[in-house]
Each structure stands twice: as structure tokens, then as C-alpha cells.
Simulated assay, not measured.
Amino acid sequence: MTYTEAYKEHIVYTFHSFCKVVIRHAAITAWRDQHRRRQKEISLEYLTEEKFYPLGTTDEYFEAPYEEHPITICGQTVVLTNGELAAALLSLPEKKREIIFLYFFGHYTQWEIGEMYGRCRSTTGYQIRRTLKLLHKEMEVFSHGES
């Protein structure tokens, strides 16, 4: 089917007018969305001058100086900055403190710790998990006791 030159020109003009309408409505939608957003936004100047909201805050955690809590485990001194953790560790038996020290600070595996204490790997893993649970409970007791 052959199209005449006038029909082809009509199709081009129709397509151009369709594109113009689409672009115009997209611009109207964008303007409308921007207008709605402006109505809902609050300026920073209004917040700082009228409502007196501070621009920044400082956490109390960083304001207080660190308190150091030295603990000696396995002949080495570990300095902790968390008093609750230090108290919870000191409340555990010496053997359990040594296991925690070797696992977290000495980077020993459960198998190596089990070899050192004459136990199999699965028992040592159980011992470490159990000790961590006890430590977690002790920390909860200390944190609730101070509040």
C-alpha cells in the first residue's frame, strides 16, 4: 500500500502535536508535584529562627571521658572502657574468663581451646556459647541494677 506525500506529512504533524501535548502535560504534572512539595516543606531558616531547633547535637556517650577498667586474664592485662562488661567478666569463674579471652582476644578456634583444656571441639563450643550466655545475663543484671 503506497501512501501519498500529503498523508505522510499529516502523520508527521499528528505525531509532533501528540508529543507536544504529552510534554506539556508532563511539565504541568512536574510543576504540580513541585508546588505540593513546596507547600509541605519547612525551611531551615524557619526551624532555626522561629522554633529554635538546634542544627546539631552531641551524643552524651562521646562527651563523657572514657573510664578504663583493667582486667588481668591469662597473665595479660586487658583494658575495657565498658564498666558493665568489666564487672560481668570479673563475676565469671577464672576458667570461663580464660576461654573468653582466648576466643576473642587470642583469636583461638574452638578446637584449639578444646585441645588446651582437654575437651573435644563440640564441648568447647558449647562451653563458649554457655559462657557468653552467662556473660550476657550478668551484663543485664548490672545494667538493671544501676538504673
Score class of each variant (00 low, 15 high):
Met1Ala: 10
Thr2Val: 05
Tyr3Lys: 09
Glu5Gly: 02
Ala6Gly: 03
Tyr7Pro: 00
Tyr7Asn: 01
Glu9Gln: 13
Val12Asn: 02
Thr14Phe: 05
Thr14Tyr: 06
Phe15Asn: 08
Ser17Val: 07
Lys20Asn: 11
Lys20Gln: 13
Val21Ser: 07
Arg24Asn: 12
Arg24Glu: 15
Arg24Leu: 08
Ile28Trp: 14
Arg32Ser: 15
Gln34Pro: 00
His35Gln: 14
His35Phe: 13
His35Cys: 11
Arg37Trp: 08
Arg38Phe: 03
Gln39Asp: 13
Gln39Phe: 06
Lys40Pro: 00
Lys40Thr: 06
Ile42Met: 10
Ile42Gly: 01
Ile42His: 04
Ser43Asn: 04
Leu44His: 11
Leu44Arg: 14
Leu47Glu: 01
Thr48Arg: 12
Lys51Tyr: 05
Tyr53Phe: 11
Leu55Thr: 06
Gly56Phe: 11
Thr58Cys: 06
Thr58Trp: 05
Asp59Gly: 05
Asp59Ile: 03
Asp59Leu: 07
Tyr61Gln: 12
Phe62Glu: 04
Phe62Ser: 04
Phe62Thr: 04
Ala64Asn: 09
Ala64Gln: 12
Pro65Cys: 05
Pro65Gly: 04
Pro65Ser: 08
Pro65Ala: 08
Pro65His: 09
Tyr66Arg: 12
Glu67Ile: 15
Glu68Asn: 12
Thr72His: 07
Gly75Ala: 06
Gly75Tyr: 06
Gln76Ala: 12
Thr77Lys: 13
Thr81Gln: 13
Gly83Asp: 12
Gly83Ala: 09
Glu84Ile: 15
Glu84Leu: 15
Glu84His: 13
Ala86Ile: 04
Ala87Cys: 12
Ala87Tyr: 07
Leu89Ser: 05
Ser91Ala: 14
Leu92Cys: 08
Leu92Glu: 02
Pro93Thr: 10
Pro93Asn: 13
Glu94Gly: 03
Lys96Val: 06
Lys96Ile: 05
Arg97Asp: 04
Arg97Glu: 04
Arg97Gln: 15
Glu98Asn: 10
Glu98Gly: 03
Ile99Asn: 07
Phe101Lys: 03
Leu102Val: 04
Tyr103Thr: 02
Tyr103Pro: 00
Tyr103Val: 01
His107Lys: 14
Tyr108Pro: 01
Tyr108Thr: 03
Thr109Ile: 02
Thr109Glu: 03
Thr109Leu: 02
Trp111His: 09
Trp111Tyr: 11
Glu112Pro: 01
Ile113Pro: 00
Ile113Ala: 00
Gly114Ala: 02
Met116Tyr: 11
Tyr117Ser: 00
Arg119Asn: 07
Cys120Ala: 08
Cys120Lys: 14
Ser122Ile: 06
Ser122Gly: 02
Thr124Met: 15
Gly125Ala: 07
Gln127Ala: 14
Gln127Arg: 09
Arg129Met: 11
Arg129His: 09
Arg129Pro: 00
Thr131Ser: 11
Lys133Gln: 12
Leu134Asn: 08
Leu134Thr: 07
Leu134Arg: 13
Leu135Ala: 01
Lys137Asn: 12
Met139Leu: 08
Met139Asp: 01
Met139Gly: 03
Glu140Val: 06
Glu140Cys: 07
Val141Lys: 11
Val141Ser: 09
Phe142Pro: 01
Ser143Tyr: 10
His144Glu: 12
Gly145Asn: 13
